Amino acid sequence: MATPNYSYEKRQRELAKKRKAEEKRQRKLTRPDGSPEGDAGAPEAGESSAPDTPASETPPAKP
């Protein structure tokens, strides 16, 4: 019976960790607002999902 190659398994786990960390770093760099990824879609307490801009502050339409 063959013995398990623990060093190979360990190396694969390390490579997977590095890959995951690099993907996370890339996601952080490409995020435009710099806010945490998990909270990007959900409004914070006190905020609504609708824009707070009144109609009087919207720019006029171009003719």
Rank of each mutant, 00 (worst) to 15 (best):
Met1Lys: 08
Met1Val: 15
Met1His: 03
Ala2Phe: 06
Ala2Ser: 11
Ala2Gly: 04
Ala2Tyr: 06
Ala2Gln: 06
Ala2His: 01
Ala2Thr: 13
Ala2Arg: 10
Thr3Glu: 07
Thr3Ile: 13
Thr3Asn: 05
Thr3Pro: 00
Pro4Trp: 05
Pro4Asp: 05
Asn5Ile: 12
Asn5Gly: 05
Asn5His: 04
Asn5Leu: 12
Asn5Arg: 09
Tyr6Arg: 15
Tyr6Thr: 15
Ser7Ile: 15
Ser7Phe: 05
Ser7Val: 12
Ser7Thr: 15
Ser7Met: 08
Ser7Cys: 05
Tyr8Met: 12
Glu9Met: 13
Lys10Pro: 00
Arg11Val: 08
Arg11Cys: 11
Arg11Pro: 00
Arg11Trp: 02
Gln12Val: 15
Arg13Lys: 12
Arg13Pro: 01
Glu14Met: 11
Glu14Thr: 11
Leu15Glu: 05
Leu15Cys: 05
Ala16Asp: 10
Ala16Thr: 11
Ala16Tyr: 01
Lys17Gln: 10
Lys17Gly: 09
Lys17Ser: 13
Lys18Ala: 15
Lys18Gly: 11
Arg19Ser: 13
Arg19Leu: 12
Lys20Gly: 04
Lys20Ala: 14
Lys20Val: 11
Lys20Tyr: 03
Ala21Ser: 13
Ala21Glu: 14
Ala21Trp: 01
Glu22Cys: 04
Glu22Pro: 00
Glu22Ala: 15
Glu23Phe: 07
Glu23Ser: 10
Lys24Val: 13
Lys24Ser: 10
Lys24Pro: 00
Arg25Asp: 06
Arg25His: 12
Gln26Trp: 04
Gln26Cys: 02
Gln26Val: 15
Arg27Lys: 12
Lys28Ala: 14
Lys28Phe: 03
Lys28Pro: 00
Leu29Thr: 11
Thr30Asn: 06
Thr30Tyr: 00
Thr30Asp: 03
Thr30Ser: 11
Thr30Leu: 14
Thr30Ile: 11
Arg31Leu: 06
Arg31Asn: 15
Pro32Gly: 06
Asp33Asn: 10
Asp33Ala: 01
Asp33Trp: 01
Ser35Thr: 14
Ser35Glu: 10
Ser35Ile: 14
Ser35Gln: 12
Ser35Phe: 10
Pro36Asp: 09
Pro36Gln: 07
Glu37Phe: 05
Glu37Tyr: 04
Gly38Cys: 03
Gly38Thr: 09
Asp39Ser: 07
Ala40His: 03
Gly41Gln: 04
Gly41Pro: 01
Ala42Ser: 08
Ala42Arg: 05
Ala42Met: 04
Glu44His: 01
Ala45Gly: 02
Ala45Asp: 01
Gly46Trp: 05
Glu47Pro: 00
Glu47Ile: 04
Glu47Thr: 02
Glu47Leu: 06
Ser48Phe: 03
Ser48Arg: 06
Ser49Tyr: 02
Ser49Ile: 14
Ser49Thr: 08
Ala50Met: 08
Ala50Cys: 03
Pro51Cys: 09
Pro51Glu: 13
Asp52Met: 04
Asp52Val: 08
Thr53Glu: 08
Thr53Met: 08
Ala55Asn: 05
Ala55Tyr: 04
Ala55Phe: 07
Ser56Asp: 07
Ser56Ala: 09
Ser56Val: 09
Glu57Ser: 03
Glu57Ala: 08
Thr58Tyr: 02
Pro59Gly: 13
Pro59Ala: 15
Pro59Asn: 11
Pro60Trp: 02
Pro60Leu: 05
Pro60Met: 04
Pro60Lys: 09
Ala61Val: 12
Ala61Pro: 04
Lys62Trp: 08
Lys62Gly: 07
Pro63Met: 07
